[in-house]
Design a protein around this nucleic acid. Structure first.
Lengths: 333, 333
DNA sequence: TTGAAAGCGCTAACAG
DNA sequence: CTGTTAGCGCTTTCAA
């Protein structure tokens, strides 16, 4: 049987209210009383029951986070940032993986809503309406997804993709293929937008393929089509796909970057580790996690103070490694 | 203001207890009454307050899990298994990353202890005494770590490592280097034990190096020593390290597997994705996660029924891919 | 500065 | 089968 506030009160010869104050509002208690109480607290190893506390304060001290795919190392990085910032603020974190499925995602958010003070939703699959509805259940911050009325943290994918295209164009490429990610998501659209704008600006012609699963397999699947189209570069929606592309290309004995250049997106750890380090776009995932919690705490503390919900945009940047080069001359093509 | 059980009771014209029963013990309520109540529940969107419920039942419906490093894809896999099984059983899961630090680990477990019904601790860094102490705070199941008196799930690392050694010996290797992981952990010891036994049995001589950080960097760091010793194979503590080895070897222009064979352990996704698919040992991570929750729930439901805490051992298996081959003949050496 | 008392929303005896 | 009652452990007025 765990020790309760009464045990402490009795042993310290004070009332329970004094114990309560000594813990959560120390300056309301005279120094020596407080000392005595805290002494007993330590001695007994007393820890307030969070359920009881939450029942009355309405706060749980917990934060939730939903990600679409823990298997994509990009998301563990966000989690790490979330956990770090949450702990600094004395919160614990609940996590869930929605498996990139909207129905599961909604279910998870509903379940969490009652148990946490607020929730961070990453790369939501949900449509605006449903998301707005869920947002009314709890305090919510979005990552890589915008919705009017909700604070969000965005990584500037459009610019990142533009940088990729610029890089390829500068290298002398004229035709490349884009292996697109899943249809609906904000990330998909932002990346495509950056791609198109930069393509138009630089005169690089882009063949858009897909959508594909944003995985190793998905990337491998897109390779034949790209090859058939005779492009000199393949731009993948994300690193996992790019790794798939690289792998398939190697199987087909197509030299990278000599015959074909390949780029990824996210800069997961493995992008730099694989046989041929991948040219990709760095996303400040951990920082985004921290920023999301920051926004959440802000909203929790200040309530509706901020008339306009905050949008935090984080910069991305191109990392040129070993999978991009000038295209082979026309003799080879 | 969220809707409470009283709102439901009032609108359904029953007492709160009937509502409570209709929800958590439906067969104690007459069918038509139950129908009426659940109707109102749905209409109002009522969801019981978990804090209040937990206050009285003593159960939170939450499970916790502590892993040493979310950045190692092996652990997200375990998490996935944990979440899957937990959800089936109607539980949510709290996660924490200890950053491979014992002090943090203890702190996290203590924090969780009050908020969850039980906790899964993976690859604990803690010594037996401290771990036992923490186990007294909550229901605990260990993964890849044993402690008398606690249920645990183990992946049979020793056999896996023995298979690696056997494979290398069969290929004709006589001398190999082992790049060991961090000093204390159970995994480290189990793998080393398997290594030594099999080495003795097969006559393969093993040079034990390290300990190293169980990361990409750690692996890369061990390469020069191994090379200097003139071995024909490098056995890494885990895949991350093996990937580091591969990378460094490539920088040094040492052909794999022609000049030197390399093996990993864990079979993380990237092991199969990298330029040269890695020979490694598959660990049933997700299954281990599920099994751990199983044991946890078991213990939660049956209390001390099981006199002897359960140990569940999961098999591992060698996956031969492209980084191992027969050693080069003496002419090359 | 401290204590007494009133619940937070729910479940679990215990009656009826 | 259903209602009444008594708290779970804590915070928070309100008085002293």
């Amino acid at each position: 049987m765990p020790v309760t506030i009464r045990d402490v009160a009795r042993q310290a010869r004070v009332s329970v209210s004094t114990v309560s104050r000594a813990i959560s509002a120390p300056d309301l208690v005279r120094a020596d009383t407080r000392e005595r109480v805290l002494e007993v607290v330590r001695g007994l190893g007393y820890q307030p029951n969070p359920a009881a506390r939450s029942l009355i304060t309405g706060r749980t001290g917990n934060l939730g986070i939903v990600v679409p795919d823990l298997g994509n190392p990009f998301f563990p990085s966000i989690l790490l940032g979330v956990q770090a910032r949450a702990r600094e603020a004395g919160n614990s974190v609940f996590f869930c993986d929605s498996g990139q499925d909207g129905v599961t995602e909604e279910e998870l958010i509903r379940t969490m809503a009652r148990q946490v003070d607020g929730v961070v939703v990453c790369a939501s699959e949900l449509d605006d309406g449903r998301l707005a509805e869920l947002a009314s259940l709890t305090t919510m911050v979005l990552v890589n997804r915008a919705l009017p009325g909700l604070p969000s943290v965005m990584m500037d994918s459009a610019s990142g993709m533009a940088a990729v295209v610029g890089h390829l164009a500068a290298l002398g490429h004229r035709r490349c293929a884009y292996l697109g990610g899943p249809g609906r998501s904000w990330s998909t659209q932002a990346r495509r937008r950056g791609l198109r704008e930069a393509a138009a600006r630089t005169g690089l012609s882009v063949l858009e393929l897909g959508p594909f699963e944003p995985t190793f397999r998905g990337g491998a699947q897109g390779v034949e089509q790209a090859l058939a189209a005779g492009v000199t570069a393949v731009v993948a929606y994300n690193d996992l796909m790019a790794l798939g592309v690289l792998n398939r290309l190697q199987q087909l004995d197509v030299a990278v970057p000599e015959r074909i250049s390949v780029t990824g997106f996210d800069d997961i750890l493995y992008a730099a580790m694989c046989g041929r380090p991948l040219t990709t776009v760095t996303m400040p995932a951990e920082e985004a996690g921290r920023a999301a919690v920051e926004l959440l705490l802000d909203q929790l503390d200040n309530g509706a103070t901020a008339a306009v919900p905050k949008l935090k945009e984080l910069p991305t940047s191109l990392v040129i490694r070993a999978t991009t080069a000038a295209p082979a001359g026309p003799t080879i093509s």
